[in-house]
Simulated scan of single mutants.
Amino acid sequence: MNSKCEFFIVKLILFMLLFGSSNVTIAQITKVKTIQEETPEQEVAAPYDSLKNICWENFRSQVGQILYLNDDAISKEWGVYSGITTMPRFEYSALVRKNWNMRYLPDSIIYKFTIGKGQHGSDYESVVGKYYYVNRLIEDPKNGSKKSGSNYSYELIMKDTPYDTVYYDFSSYVKFFGTFINTGYIEKLKQKYVGKELIINEDDSGLEKIGTGKYEKIPKGTHLKCTDISIEDGNQYHILLLLHHDKYGDFYADLTLGVEMERLDTPEMYKVRLQKETALARKYGKVNADLIIRNQVRTGWSKAMCRESWGAPKSVNVMSGAGGTTEQWVYSSSCYLYFKNGILTTIQY
Rank of each mutant, 00 (worst) to 15 (best):
N2K: 13
F8P: 06
I13M: 14
M16I: 07
L17K: 15
L17N: 14
L18P: 02
G20K: 08
N23E: 11
N23V: 03
Q28T: 09
I35M: 10
Q36P: 13
E38I: 02
P47H: 12
Y48F: 11
E57M: 03
R60D: 07
Q65P: 03
L67Q: 02
A73P: 12
E77W: 05
W78H: 11
G79K: 01
V80W: 04
V80D: 14
S82I: 10
I84W: 00
T85R: 03
P88W: 02
R89Y: 08
A94Q: 09
L95P: 07
L95S: 15
V96T: 07
V96G: 10
N99R: 12
N101D: 04
M102G: 02
R103F: 11
P106C: 08
D107N: 13
I109C: 08
K117Y: 01
H120K: 15
S122C: 14
S122F: 13
D123R: 12
Y124Q: 06
Y124N: 01
E125M: 06
E125F: 01
S126Q: 09
S126L: 12
K130F: 07
Y133F: 08
N135L: 08
I138K: 02
E139T: 02
D140R: 03
G144F: 01
G149I: 00
G149Q: 00
E155Q: 11
M158D: 14
D160S: 14
T165V: 07
V166G: 13
Y167E: 09
Y168G: 05
Y168H: 00
Y168L: 05
S171N: 09
K175F: 09
F180Y: 05
I181A: 14
T183G: 06
I186M: 15
I186A: 14
V194W: 04
G195P: 12
L198E: 10
I199K: 06
I199A: 09
D203F: 04
G211D: 00
T212L: 05
Y215W: 15
E216F: 02
K217L: 10
H223K: 08
H223C: 06
K225I: 00
D233G: 09
Y237F: 11
I239A: 07
L242R: 09
H244E: 14
H244S: 15
G249Y: 02
L255F: 00
V259S: 15
M261E: 12
M261R: 14
L264D: 07
D265L: 09
P267G: 13
Y270I: 00
R273N: 03
L274S: 04
L274D: 02
Q275L: 10
Q275H: 11
A281D: 03
A281C: 13
K283Y: 08
G285P: 05
A289K: 04
L291D: 12
I292Y: 06
R294D: 05
V297Y: 01
R298F: 08
A304F: 02
M305Y: 00
C306A: 01
R307P: 00
R307Y: 00
E308Q: 05
K314S: 11
V316A: 07
V318E: 11
A322V: 12
G324D: 07
T326I: 10
Y331S: 05
S333P: 06
S333G: 11
Y336I: 07
Y338W: 13
F339L: 12
N341M: 04
G342K: 02
T345R: 12
T346M: 15
